[in-house]
Lab assay of single mutants.
Amino acid sequence: PKDEAKKKVKEAIKRGDEETAKRIAKKYNLDWDDAKREADEER
């Protein structure tokens, strides 16, 4: 599900692992900028 994928993307971003985050986002066709902004807001 997309929500689960987005959570994984945000967790990867918070760990500083943007490569993984981008790969997950691409795989699930998520909006990378959107997920990154959300992760930054939660930090």
Rank of each mutant, 00 (worst) to 15 (best):
I13N: 01
E11R: 04
W32G: 01
E42K: 05
R23T: 09
K27E: 15
D31S: 09
K14P: 01
E18V: 13
D17W: 06
R15S: 09
K2G: 10
P1H: 13
Y28H: 15
K2V: 14
D17M: 04
A39F: 11
A39I: 10
D31W: 00
T20P: 01
K22E: 04
I24N: 01
E42V: 07
R23N: 09
K26T: 08
E42M: 07
E42I: 06
P1Y: 11
D34E: 15
N29T: 03
R43M: 15
K10S: 08
E19S: 07
K2H: 12
E42W: 04
A5K: 03
D3A: 13
P1K: 13
P1M: 14
K36S: 06
E42P: 07
K22F: 02
A39W: 09
D34I: 10
A25H: 01
E18H: 12
A5I: 10
E11N: 06
A12T: 02
I13D: 01
N29M: 06
A21G: 04
D34T: 12
K10P: 01
K14D: 10
V9Q: 00
K36D: 03
G16N: 04
I24K: 00
R37N: 09
K7L: 11
E19W: 05
K27W: 07
P1V: 14
E41R: 11
V9F: 11
A21Y: 00
K2F: 13
D3Y: 12
A12Q: 02
K8H: 10
A21R: 00
K6L: 15
E18G: 03
R15M: 10
Y28Q: 12
E4M: 12
D40C: 13
A39G: 04
R23P: 00
R23V: 09
D34W: 07
A25S: 04
V9N: 00
E38T: 06
A12V: 02
I24P: 00
A35N: 04
Y28G: 15
A39L: 10
I24R: 01
W32N: 01
T20C: 14
A21V: 00
A39E: 06
D33F: 06
A39M: 09
G16K: 02
A39P: 03
K6S: 06
I13L: 13
K8N: 06
K8W: 12
A12D: 01
I13T: 01
K27I: 12
R43S: 13
D31A: 03
K22I: 08
E19G: 05
N29D: 14
N29E: 12
E11T: 03
N29A: 07
E42A: 07
A35Y: 08
A35S: 07
V9A: 03
L30C: 15
A35C: 15
K22W: 02
K10Y: 10
D31V: 03
D40F: 12
R37Y: 07
A5T: 03
D31F: 02
L30I: 15
A21F: 00
W32S: 01
G16D: 04
T20D: 09
D3H: 10
D31P: 04
I13C: 04
E18Y: 15
E41Y: 11
E19Q: 07
K36G: 03
Y28T: 13
E4D: 12
K27G: 02
K14V: 08
D3G: 09
T20N: 07
E41N: 10
K6D: 02
A21I: 00
V9W: 05
K6I: 13
K7P: 01
E19M: 08
R23M: 09
Y28R: 15
A25Q: 01
I24E: 03
R37S: 09
D40H: 10
K36E: 05
R43F: 14
L30E: 05
K8E: 10
D33N: 09
A21C: 02
A21M: 00
E11K: 02
K36N: 06
A25V: 03
G16H: 04
I24V: 05
A12S: 04
A25Y: 00
R37K: 12
D3E: 13
K7F: 07
D33V: 07
D3T: 10
V9T: 03
R23L: 07
G16Y: 03
K14G: 07
K26I: 09
D34F: 06
R23A: 14
D3V: 11
K10R: 12
K10N: 07
L30K: 02
K27H: 10
R37L: 07
P1R: 13
P1C: 15
I24G: 00
E38W: 07
R37Q: 10
Y28V: 15
V9E: 00
K14R: 13
E19H: 06
W32I: 08
E4V: 09
